[in-house]
């Protein structure tokens, strides 16, 4: 770990003040950043501890939820409003990491998790455009079991590792941020980037910008939503693929649907193509399969991850089938 100074902020204003200039990083639970620092992938000269920011979960005026950035993952997953109104979010969080890590990790930090690409992590021995812009990508042609099939670029084929973010993408969460230029909100889908030729940038956040809260808009039909994660061991493993879904079926017809995929792209993948195809269609397995095929139509396999395309399709169909009670 490169030497750094440490300061604690009690609120967003203090954090912004402390984080101004130089190579400062905001520190939440540390579950990813401390590891990245130890690997010398992150080398901040200053850490601003933002666990003193709001850890409140409150109802918004329109029956949504406002979640402080310092809320711990466990606290969010166990919150009665989340369990009953947004169960896919509880399930996504509970499917991630381990209980110890969920007890430490903050909501804000979870959004800024970096990829598990093993070439990204191999500081000394592998080239990585995300770690060292312009150096090349050794993942292509190497072990790519956990890599992207959608939205990748020649520069980067990494995936975003968060489970929670897949649910937030499906739920159309709104991200509240503050920076030198003041406060702004981002729709969740706009927060994370596809790699393009700038894979070093995971998100659109400006330097020094701080996530202060996540807002969940009301979504009544999310009360029966779910999250399904497919992985190589039964627990404590990153997703091969995952599906967050909510579906509103009235008289056998799909009135609305939310669908997002994890483990397939550089960002949590909102399945807008599938959603558009499904709205207004009868809730049948055939419809689900058509939508899944359409969503994965542009998928491009690497050496080891071609299975993800079929796996994602099957899982989408099964999850939507379970939620809607549809039969073949």
């Amino acid at each position: 770990m490169t030497p750094f100074s440490y300061a604690r902020a009690n609120n967003a204003a203090e954090a912004l003040q402390l984080g101004r200039g130089g190579a400062a990083n905001y520190l939440g639970g540390g579950t990813n950043l401390v590891d990245l620092m130890r690997e010398t992938i992150a080398k901040p000269d200053r850490l601003v501890d933002v666990t003193g920011l709001s850890d409140a979960i409150t109802d918004t005026a329109d029956d949504g939820l406002l979640i402080g950035a310092a809320v711990r993952n466990t606290a969010l997953a166990e919150h009665p409003a989340v369990r009953t109104r947004y169960p896919m979010l509880s399930r996504a969080i509970l499917a991630g990491a381990s209980a110890q890590i969920r007890n430490m990790a903050t909501v804000g930090g979870n959004l800024l998790q970096r990829t598990r690409c093993t070439y990204f992590y191999d500081t000394d021995g592998s080239r990585c455009n995300k770690r060292v812009p312009g150096s090349g990508c050794d993942a292509v042609g190497g072990f790519t079991r956990i890599h992207a099939v959608l939205g990748a670029s020649p520069a980067c084929v990494a995936t975003h590792p968060s489970d929670m973010c897949v649910a937030l993408a499906a739920l159309d969460a709104v991200v509240h941020v503050e920076g030198a230029g003041g406060a702004r909100t981002l729709s969740f889908g706009d927060l994370h980037r596809l790699p393009g030729d700038r894979p070093e940038l995971d998100t659109v956040l400006e330097v020094g910008e701080l996530i202060t809260a996540i807002e969940l808009p009301p979504l009544p039909f999310a009360a029966s939503s779910t999250y399904r994660k497919v992985r190589d061991r039964a627990s404590y493993a990153f997703a091969l693929i995952s599906v967050a879904a909510a579906i509103d079926v009235v008289d056998g017809e799909i009135r609305d649907v939310r669908l997002a995929l994890g483990g397939v792209a550089h960002k949590p993948w909102r399945a807008t193509t599938a959603e558009a195809l499904l709205r207004g269609r009868p809730a049948t397995e055939a419809a689900f399969r058509d939508a899944a095929i359409a969503e994965l139509a542009d998928a491009r396999p690497l050496r080891d991850n071609g299975f993800k395309i079929e796996l994602a399709k099957r899982t989408i169909v099964a999850v939507l089938g379970d939620l809607s009670g549809a039969t073949a």
Binding site: Y6, L27, G29, G30, T31, V34, D35, L47, D49, T51, A99, Q100, I101, N103, M104
Partner: peptide
């Protein structure tokens, strides 16, 4: 794993100053 105020956490990922 240790307990902090009764909650289990991973002490390897915890900076002591926090």
């Amino acid at each position: 794993t240790v307990l902090v105020d009764g909650e289990r956490i991973l002490s390897c990922l915890a900076l002591a100053v926090q």
